[in-house]
Amino acid sequence: MAREVGVFAQALATWRGRRSSGRRRDALDRRTIVCPCHDATLFDLRSSWEAGYRHPETLKRATAVFMGPCQGKLCGQVTGDVIAALQGATEPEERRPSVRPPLFPVRMGDLVYEDESKPAGGAA
């Protein structure tokens, strides 16, 4: 469990340590990227949270974290830590957004049934 506390501390330290507030803090959080896939920033997460998107699933939809090519591999932990920090807990109260297939992006052509007569287009 020590490790979660350590990472969670990262989120808190980011804010506490700065001793800055308001505009200065916003400016710093805008340049702190949580989700590189969609350029969702720490500011995006915090302000969406403050606006009321307070569930991991709704925060995901509001900021597009978990929704890029990484599907949460990179942003998932940090997002969880930020949510936890905002909740004042060490882990978010709600479960993480579900892990959807595929685990890594797959080219559509890689999933085509080779026997074209088989299933597709059978509706005619």
């Binding site: 890029g68 090519p69 599907q71 297939p101 992006p105 797959v106 080219r107 559509m108 052509g109 085509v112």
Partner: peptide
């Protein structure tokens, strides 16, 4: 891919 053949080269992210 039958309807848009070139889509075969695009990656599916999520289902």
């Amino acid at each position: 891919v039958r309807l848009f053949p070139d889509l075969g080269g695009v990656r599916i992210l999520r289902n």
